[in-house]
C-alpha cells in the first residue's frame, strides 16, 4: 500500500487543528452565548445574536470606527513612506550596498515589538528629552502632549509596521529589473512616465502584499495602543482583551473578536473593489491596440 501524499504534513495539520482551528471555532461558538451572572465567564445553553448587537452598541462602536480609521490611515502612510524608500533601495543603490541596507530594514523588524514601542514612549513623554529639546529651542512653550493620544498610536503603528511595507515593495521593484526601465526610456518615456507606466504597474503584486501585511496585523494591534494610546487611543484589540481579562465576559469578547475578523475581511474586499474600479478605466484608456497602429508607417510599427 502506498502512503498518502500528505503523510508528512499530517503532524503540522493535526497540531494546527488542535491548537488553532478548534480554539478559534470555540470562540465563534461562545460569541453566540451570554455571560451568566457575575462569576461565570460564558454560557451557551441559549444561543442568540445579542452579543453582536451589544458589541456594536454606541459604547463600543466608536472603538471599531477608530480602529478602522487608524488601520486605513496607518496603511496609507506606510505606503506613501514606503514606495520612495523601496524604490530608492531597489533602483538607486548599488547592489553591494543594497544587501546592507536591506539588513538595516530587517533589524528593527526583528527587535522586540514591545521594546521598540516603549522607545517611542520614552521619546514622546512630556518629561522626555524631545519635549525638553523643543522647549529649549523655543519651538514649544508647553511640554509635548502627544503621548496617550490617537496621534501617538498612529505614529506608533506606522513605525511598527513600516518594515512590512518596505520589504515586499523592495522585492517587487527589484524584480522589475533595469532592462524594463531602459526599454521604456528607449521608447521615449521620461523618468516620471517610466515610473508611473512601467515600474509602478509591474510592482503591483508587491504593493498588494505590502498593504495586506500591514493592514491585517495593524487592525488587531494591541501593544502599540496599550503603550502609546492610553484611554484615548483605544483599539478593538484592547477591547477584546479587556472583555476576556478584566470584565470576564467571554461571550461578548468572542463576539468582538469575530467582528474584528469580519471588519478586516470586508475592508480588504472593499479596498480591492475600489482599487479595481479606479485602475480599470485607467489601464483601458492606456491600452494600445495593434489595430490603432495600422495607419502608421512601417518603420514605427
Amino acid at each position: 500500500m502506498r502512503a498518502p501524499r500528505f503523510l508528512l504534513a499530517i503532524p503540522a495539520w493535526a497540531w494546527l487543528a488542535a491548537f488553532f482551528v478548534l480554539p478559534v471555532a470555540t470562540v465563534v461558538y461562545f460569541s453566540f452565548g451570554y455571560k451568566p451572572g457575575i462569576f461565570g465567564t460564558h454560557a451557551t445553553d441559549v444561543l442568540s445574536l445579542d452579543r453582536y448587537r451589544e458589541a456594536l452598541s454606541p459604547t463600543f462602536f466608536t472603538t471599531f470606527t477608530n480602529t478602522l480609521r487608524v488601520g486605513v490611515l496607518g496603511t496609507l502612510l506606510c505606503l506613501v513612506i514606503g514606495i520612495p524608500m523601496a524604490y530608492w533601495m531597489a533602483v538607486k543603490v548599488s547592489p553591494g550596498k543594497r544587501a546592507f541596507l536591506l539588513a538595516l530594514v530587517i533589524v528593527p523588524f526583528w527587535t522586540n515589538f514591545l521594546v521598540r514601542t516603549i522607545g517611542w514612549q520614552v521619546i514622546l513623554a512630556p518629561e522626555g528629552w524631545l519635549s525638553g529639546m523643543l522647549q529649549a529651542l523655543g519651538l514649544r512653550e508647553n511640554p509635548l502632549a502627544i503621548l496617550y493620544t490617537r496621534s501617538a498610536v498612529l505614529l506608533g503603528v506606522v513605525y511598527n509596521y513600516l518594515p512590512l511595507m518596505i520589504l515586499p515593495l523592495f522585492v517587487a521593484f527589484d524584480r522589475v529589473g533595469p532592462a524594463m526601465r531602459e526599454a521604456s526610456k528607449d521608447l521615449g518615456a521620461n523618468r516620471w512616465r517610466t515610473f508611473t507606466r512601467v515600474t509602478l504597474p509591474m510592482a503591483r503584486p508587491g504593493i498588494i502584499a505590502g498593504i495586506l501585511l500591514v493592514f491585517i496585523p495593524l487592525m488587531g494591534d494591541y501593544i502599540t495602543a496599550t503603550v502609546l494610546g492610553g484611554a484615548r487611543g483605544n483599539m478593538v484589540g484592547q477591547l477584546v482583551a479587556s472583555q476576556f481579562q478584566a470584565a470576564q465576559n467571554w461571550a461578548l469578547g468572542s463576539a468582538m473578536a469575530v467582528l474584528l475578523i469580519i471588519v478586516i475581511a470586508v475592508t480588504v474586499l472593499v479596498g480591492a473593489a475600489i482599487a479595481y474600479v479606479v485602475t480599470w478605466p485607467l489601464s483601458r484608456a492606456r491600452r494600445l491596440r495593434l489595430a490603432d497602429l495600422e495607419g502608421l508607417p512601417e518603420k514605427v510599427r
Binding site: F6, L16, F19, F20, V24, I216, A241, L260
Partner: peptide, 27 residues
C-alpha cells in the same frame, strides 16, 4: 491537498494574534 493545507496556513498567518490569544486561553 496542498491547496487546502496552504489555505489553513494562510488562515493561521492572517488571524490577528489577539484572536489566537483569547481562543487559546479557554481552550
Amino acid at each position: 491537498w496542498v491547496l487546502w493545507f496552504v489555505g489553513l496556513l494562510l488562515l493561521v498567518s492572517v488571524t490577528p494574534e489577539i484572536v489566537d490569544a483569547v481562543a487559546l486561553l479557554p481552550w
